[in-house]
């Protein structure tokens, strides 16, 4: 017999997140051939494909920065965001069976997924930068500390989005159908694969409302010394991230029982 020791809430939270992380890793990558290599291959294929197309077109997007690197700085954060968005919508339905264990709540499922996506994002970004550098595709690095700050804020932002979508996706299952319709346009207005400076000046005011645009421009600024985003505004990103996180937590807190409760 092995007693379940009395744990305080923090220990329970820690145990649950740790167990869930192991489980997510095993289910996501365990079943495929090459296993964990997909952590890297998934975003790499996406980025390389787009980079190849645009390199083929022979355009340089930003003077002084190789196309592949420019793309990487935009696509990697966007994939992270879009995964958090999609996983959030499905978080409750795909984990129903788990909520039979009383210490497991939708919050844990969402937090685990966002944490895992975040780790994959950072890992793949660093690994791909290293691989490209090995092939001689480099640009002068700018500011490591700024990257840390941006990514912490970005994590908060995505957690907020994911929590909100978890509630929305469960209360309105139809939302799953609309999710791609929301994410896809964001792809184009967030400056993922072209610089939004080409858009007429009069629309800049509207575009700059989009926090993702700030994330992407700031990430590029942190990565490449020669990049200067026209929109990039760190205080705005900080505010919108914290507001998004607070909003997500509030929405979740007010609704979480309904997500688990039989109606």
């Amino acid at each position: 017999m092995h007693p379940v020791v009395q744990r305080n809430p923090w220990q329970i939270q820690r145990d649950v997140i740790r167990a869930l992380l192991i489980r997510e890793m095993k289910t996501r990558f365990g079943k495929w051939r090459l296993g964990y290599a997909w952590v890297l291959l998934e975003p790499a294929m996406h980025i390389m494909l787009l980079a190849a197309i645009f390199s083929f077109m022979g355009r340089e997007f930003y003077p002084g920065i190789p196309t592949a690197l420019f793309m990487l700085g935009g696509i990697a954060p966007f994939i992270f965001f879009s995964n958090c968005f999609g996983k959030g919508v499905a978080a409750v339905e795909s984990n129903r069976g788990l909520f039979n264990y009383r210490q497991l709540r939708p919050f844990d499922a969402v937090l685990t997924r966002v944490l895992l996506e975040f780790a994959i994002y950072l890992f793949s970004l660093v690994a791909l930068l290293a691989i490209l550098a090995w092939f001689g595709v480099t640009a002068r690095f700018n500011d490591f500390l700024m990257l840390i700050g941006i990514n912490l804020l970005f994590f908060c932002f995505c957690l907020g989005v994911s929590l909100t979508m978890c509630v929305v996706g469960t209360k309105f299952p139809e939302a799953a159908k609309f999710a791609p319709m929301i994410v896809r346009p964001l792809y184009f207005i967030s400056g993922v694969f072209f610089s939004l400076e080409q858009v007429p000046e009069e629309y800049h005011g509207y575009l700059s409302w989009n926090p993702l645009l700030h994330v992407i421009e700031l990430t590029r600024e942190g990565l490449f010394a020669s990049y200067h985003g026209v929109f990039a505004d760190l205080p705005y990103l900080a505010t919108s991230s914290l507001v998004m996180l607070a909003f997500g937590l509030l929405v979740y807190r007010s609704q979480w029982r309904d997500l688990v409760r039989s109606q």
């Binding site: 192991i22 289910t27 788990l98």
Partner: peptide
């Protein structure tokens, strides 16, 4: 209750997961 089992994981992995959420490591 077997609803919490993840089909693609082995029995041992599933059991280890349950142990984990109960703080048994």
């Amino acid at each position: 209750l077997s609803g919490g089992f993840q089909g693609s994981m082995t029995g041992r992995e599933n059991a280890a997961f349950i142990c984990g959420i109960h703080g048994i490591w």
